[in-house]
Amino acid sequence: MSTHTNGNAKTNRMPPTHVEIRVRRRERRDAAPYWEEFRIPYRPNLNIISALMEIRKNPVTKDGRATTPPVWDMNCLEQVCGICTMVINGKVRQSCSALVDQLEQPITLEPMSKFPNVRDLVVDRSEMFEHLKRVKAWIEIDGTHDLGAGPRMTQDEVAERYTYSRCMTCGCCLEACPQYGDGNYIGPQAIAQVRLMNMHPSGKMTRDERLEGIMGDDGITACGNAQNCVRVCPMSIPLTKAIYEENRETLVHGLFGWLKR
């Protein structure tokens, strides 16, 4: 249930006077990437976003050359929208919750590598939303008119669903997953959403349709059980548990599904 800031190593050095940041940039999708280095005055409690904002105010590289302001995405600034995800010192995480004080310098910032790079640190993660369509990650309600309360549930059931429903589609798990890429695996994020929907009393009623969404060659069986995903998920979502449960469901469905037809 808990979120955590992965990879924040506490360091107890004297505060530096400056912060050095290397940014891997790219002008447009098909352009070649290149590195640029920046140097900004140190302030306590800087996060990567404030550091980037500082650079943007005065876009000059470390060696004094004027450049364009680096481009990145941000919105909530409290690790709940997922938009600002990038690779920081080699680890995929949210830049809003990455504190400069807890990072080794020079800090390197790179866009995620598993998704098309739009510009600089911005990537296009629309394939994750496409996967949600494919697995029908929604409850088939009869309509939005007033039909009274929903089904009763125990707090325990709700608590388990809640852990899955915190997924902010950030893509960290996909970035870290050795199997994910080039469209050969749907990935843990979508499978966890299948779990979320299949646990709901109304969601159960259309469970089979969702299972079919994760049963192809690029489905759940493509998981190599490397467990990288669960280690990087900023929302601490039990991804391997979801994979285990859904694997079981798909097996049962594969074995006995035909009986229901």
Binding site: I141, T144, D146, G148, A149, G150, V158, A159, S165, S202
Partner: peptide
């Protein structure tokens, strides 16, 4: 209630 039916883990 509608959100409850849509699956919000209240």
């Amino acid at each position: 209630y509608l959100f409850d039916r849509m699956g919000v883990p209240f």
